[in-house]
Design a protein around this nucleic acid. Sequence first.
DNA 1: TTCGGCTATGACACCGTTGTCATGACTTCG
DNA 2: CGAAGTCATGACAACGGTGTCATAGCCGAA
Lengths: 351, 351
Amino acid sequence: MPTIYDVAKIAGVSPKTVSRVLNDATPVAQTTRRAVEAAIEQLGYVPSYAARTMRSNRSGLVGLISGAISEVPSSPELSGLPEIYIFQGIQTLLRQAGKTLLIADTGGDAATIPQLIKTFAEHRVEGVFYVAPYHQPVTLPPRQGLANFVIANGFDAEGTPAVVPDDYAGQKALVARLIEVGHRRIAYLTLPRDVVATRERTAGYIDALKDAGLPVDPALLRPAEALGQSPEDGRRMLEYALSSVLALPDPPTVICAGTDRLAMQFYGILRSRGMRVPEDISITGYDDYRLISETLYPPLTTVELPYVRMGQAAAKILLDRLAGGAPAPAPPQRIGGAVRWRDSVVPPQRA
Amino acid sequence: MPTIYDVAKIAGVSPKTVSRVLNDATPVAQTTRRAVEAAIEQLGYVPSYAARTMRSNRSGLVGLISGAISEVPSSPELSGLPEIYIFQGIQTLLRQAGKTLLIADTGGDAATIPQLIKTFAEHRVEGVFYVAPYHQPVTLPPRQGLANFVIANGFDAEGTPAVVPDDYAGQKALVARLIEVGHRRIAYLTLPRDVVATRERTAGYIDALKDAGLPVDPALLRPAEALGQSPEDGRRMLEYALSSVLALPDPPTVICAGTDRLAMQFYGILRSRGMRVPEDISITGYDDYRLISETLYPPLTTVELPYVRMGQAAAKILLDRLAGGAPAPAPPQRIGGAVRWRDSVVPPQRA
DNA sequence: TTCGGCTATGACACCGTTGTCATGACTTCG
DNA sequence: CGAAGTCATGACAACGGTGTCATAGCCGAA
């Protein structure tokens, strides 16, 4: 591969001048610049980041770790949206800033993380992203001399900069909207009780009802899933939760599902019982996982899980720190997701 | 950050000896080795890949490009499985080989690729993966001096090493299995006519029928989707295809959908018409996209799209080349996917 | 005219490792 | 007992850039 010396020789200048041209550094005469650029073109010269890194100590690399970094065992049922959207958000901003993304996946085994971090350290990454598979508390392993960690889709106890979805506001906005179109009996069949998203969204659900002066009926609020259960148990729990609210003397006119996947299952169960969606009952989801929400018929009203924007926010935090900005520990940054209003919800029909 | 000199000074040896310890090179005395290892531990020393790269010209980095690298415009309806599984397969093997993965996403804009490749070149990657969003022909942009390209989920006209799913064998095995349990009237409602997967799977469908000595009825074989149509048109086409085969004088006992997503839509349509799955009609999918195939009730019989293994196969090709193995151009390597037999198929019921 | 200041450029060392080659101590064998 | 061979180690240069400092040419002001 050609080097800066080859370019210098052809252009008839010193290597240092070539370096200046490459870095847009002052001062270089117009004619010199053109000669150097021509030589670069002619040779197909590409500068070496490795050499640049040694002198300047800035590698242009940023690491990303995804997979089982959680305290909670990996639950496929919870990681609805592929984390790849978070990657995309991160990468978009990094590329604009001239950084390149190194990725490593734990493959579900948290024990591999120290090794991954060591590899990143060997490549002298300027920062590291941790991407959790769903909104959760995490514990970062030892930093091994690296700085500038940012957590996406999670948070830790040490106040590491973090970005999370605003689950509270999302569910609250959705329920407020349901109330607005006339619903009064709103069931909420949630994800497992112990996850962050359930706690926050439930609070949003309750506050939306209170804000509208509606009563909160505990019979309308129940988990439709538990952590670590078998598929059969899951199915049974789901049907039981649904049956319970439908059997109430004053049944709901709309069912909010904890996730688009649950909503999809409700479609199936309701239809095999002869109920029509949305004529007989309205349904909402959460995530806006478009493979489901746009494919279902009728298309699903849901709340966006703003993964791309979360990734961008995480990248912005890191880039600001690299630029020498304030560390900004603060509480996790919360990213709101829009309500996606589709045809699975209609105003309640008179009985 | 501590360097090899700091380690050498503390251990009382020369830098070169430290280097030998780091690389497990002969010959180093046991006592010396221990002293050096102790010094490394004490300082928290981490070797610099950048410096190593300069001397040895091996960066330990491999690039991966995903996104719109296709000739075909990106169709969300076709990229059933998230490419992330291909990444995982690739990364598993690379990590074992001590390589680190650099990733870049085009963000849907193929015009960005030359820039991405240039960035990879600056980091002196040892190879580059192209990952297509679904099985398709691709055209690689200029290589800009880089070698060792491998295509995953696609193939090009130049014979670049490539890995693709064996769509022919997958559909053939599925249909053979259906015949085995007694089905004779087997409908196939496919993905858009022009995509590779449809051509190959249709051939598999036909050959399975022929092998069993069954007639091929063109009325049972039709596309359920077209490229680039609106959601409403899509829905209409889908319903029309389904209605057509059901209205036949001798209707099918099982419907093979072009993808799990289509199968999911068929569940919905059939149920809103009062038909039961699988009692009244069996259904199969393709992809084994578990968020759908395991969540549907009854769980969906489908064919695995072996993305993880495809990624591993692609990585193996690259690693073999890096190790100096034969270039192995050959036709694309075909990776077979297993039939996943679940409850959406039962033997045909007597009319 | 002379001198300070600015512009464009180059010489040189250095970043952190490793390949090449040399060297000294110790074995082994005739 | 000396020559040849092995083992453990170190000196030195080189990889491809960039930071620091020096320098030559040119300008305008005193």
